[in-house]
Design a protein around this nucleic acid. Structure first.
Lengths: 98, 98
DNA sequence: TAATCATATGAAATGTGGTTCATACGAAGA
DNA sequence: TCTTCGTATGAACCACATTTCATATGATTA
């Protein structure tokens, strides 16, 4: 990845938009437009965010005609989310939403 | 934890100061002043940051006389860091500093 | 209980990243 | 090659998190 630091890597999980993208891509790879429509967000917003996610190899891209299909790097992301889930289960108090 | 969301949780790793604190506490628990001096940062800065880390149960606190000793929640944090290390090893290019 | 040490806290100032908007680029088909 | 569709990009703007500074609180000891 061209990601310059651990901090940069983690920023991708520390942001609502990026986190939602990650969640969407857990199910299936998607193009920019698909994501944009599914999330009801501007195309450029999604695009900017995808760029940063891909830069840290959290997502992979492949071209398919005019579209770019983004997919999740599950090897890293899935166990990461599991860890946090466990953490929340253990330490979460009433105020915690998720 | 009183941490309201995954995003809030991850913000602690996505910030230089907080990340440095985490790294320091990998070795041994420390008081606010110890950290402050070791990191050459203002006491209040450290204190503010510690508060957020503790709020998400990334750190634990215990009182010891006048001091408050902060320690790392290794159960969650260590495997988390391992995951990212692996990720970096696999995907990191030349520009990557760590 | 006064003084001191260690830490926390609030608000203002500062810094930084995210979104928006306009536009450019690239691929594919007519 | 012109047009259209899909996506990327740059800069200005905005929102929010972080730091700073002054001060308050809590624990301990003389």
């Amino acid at each position: 990845m061209k990601c310059g630091s651990y901090e940069e890597f983690f920023k991708n999980f520390a942001n609502k938009t990026k986190f939602k993208i990650i969640m969407r891509l857990k199910n299936k790879p998607m193009s920019v437009n698909e994501l944009s429509k599914a999330m009801r967000e501007e195309q450029s917003k999604i695009s900017h965010n995808l760029a940063k996610l891909a830069r840290c190899s959290i997502l992979n891209v492949k071209q398919k005609g005019k579209q770019r299909i983004y997919s999740l790097n599950k090897d890293t992301v899935m166990p990461m989310l599991k860890l946090v889930e466990k953490h929340v289960e253990k330490h979460c108090d009433m105020r915690c939403k998720k």
